[in-house]
């Protein structure tokens, strides 16, 4: 049976790039009475199940996927973890 590794790709808006979604969440938290929320950044998490047993290869493959599709380097940064 082939092994499977899970890669977790976290995609975040680059610092300096306007994050309207994060701003909206921060506003809603304030409305709900949560004080002291200084900043909110909203991104997304994408989990990939990879038919791969070598963590280094799995990480390299997920990074390639992030560069090609999962993240847009103009506006987003990404981080890959093998979990």
């Amino acid at each position: 049976m082939s092994g499977t590794l899970k890669a977790r790709v976290t995609v975040m808006p680059k610092s300096g790039v306007l994050d309207p979604e994060g701003k909206a969440i921060a506003h809603a938290l304030g409305t709900l009475g949560f004080a002291g929320v200084e900043d909110v950044r909203a991104g997304k998490v994408i989990e990939l199940a990879l038919a791969e047993t070598d963590p280094a290869k799995a990480k390299a493959a997920a990074e390639e996927m992030a560069r090609k599709l999962l993240a847009n380097s103009v506006i987003e940064s990404f981080r890959v973890e093998i979990v």
């Binding site: 790039v17 306007l18 309207p20 979604e21 701003k23 909206a24 847009n72 103009v74 506006i75």
Partner: peptide
């Protein structure tokens, strides 16, 4: 066109939300 790299830049959510 921007996502395909045929034009530079990207289009984000409207600032007004």
């Amino acid at each position: 066109l921007c996502e395909a790299g045929l034009l530079p830049g990207a289009l984000l959510r409207n600032a007004t939300l």
